[in-house]
Amino acid sequence: MAHSRGKRRLRTLVRNGWISDQHGAWPMVILPAFVGAQLAHRGSIAATADTLAVIDPVLATSLPITWLTGFLCFTAIERWALTPKKRRPSCLPAIITWGTIATTTGLITVIRSPMLLLWTPVFLPLFVAALWEVLHRRPRSPLARLTTVTAASLMLPVFALGVVGAPSPLRTTPELWRATAILGSYFVGTVPFVRSMIRARSDHRWEHASVLWHLTSAVLILLATIWGAVSWPIGVLWVIIACRAWAFPRWQRAHGPVKPIIIGMLEIVLSIVLSALIILA
Rank of each mutant, 00 (worst) to 15 (best):
I268Y: 13
R8E: 09
T109S: 15
G189L: 09
F71K: 05
P32D: 03
R79I: 03
W98F: 08
D21W: 13
T75P: 02
W132Y: 13
T120N: 01
V122P: 04
H41Y: 10
V110T: 07
A49K: 03
L135S: 05
L266D: 04
W213C: 01
P27I: 01
W227P: 00
R137H: 09
L143V: 13
P57A: 08
P121T: 03
R171H: 13
R8H: 03
A181K: 11
W238E: 04
T66N: 07
A37M: 12
M155D: 04
T66S: 15
A49C: 02
W238K: 03
K86R: 15
V110S: 06
L82S: 04
P249V: 01
L212V: 10
S231P: 07
S153D: 09
P64Y: 11
V29R: 10
R201I: 00
V191N: 04
F123L: 06
A47Y: 10
L92I: 13
S90M: 14
H3F: 14
R171N: 10
H41N: 08
G184Q: 05
L237P: 04
L31E: 07
L131K: 11
L154I: 05
L154D: 08
G43M: 04
C73P: 00
L117A: 15
V239P: 09
W232A: 10
T216F: 14
C91M: 07
A81S: 15
L117H: 12
W251D: 00
R137W: 01
S210A: 12
I221S: 05
T103F: 15
A151C: 01
V58W: 13
V54W: 12
I263F: 03
P125C: 03
P157A: 06
Q22P: 00
T225A: 08
H208L: 12
G264Q: 08
F34K: 00
E78L: 05
L277W: 01
W238Y: 15
I268N: 07
W119F: 14
V269K: 13
L277F: 12
A2P: 07
W67A: 12
L270D: 01
I198Q: 13
I261Y: 09
A37P: 02
P57E: 05
A33V: 00
V230A: 06
V54H: 12
L131D: 00
A33S: 14
V163I: 15
C91L: 14
F248A: 11
P114R: 07
A60S: 10
S4G: 00
G256R: 07
G36D: 03
L154K: 02
A47M: 11
L124T: 12
G228N: 12
L274W: 08
V58Y: 06
L126G: 05
A46K: 11
D21F: 04
L156D: 03
L154V: 03
P125G: 01
A151N: 04
A151Y: 00
S210V: 06
L117M: 14
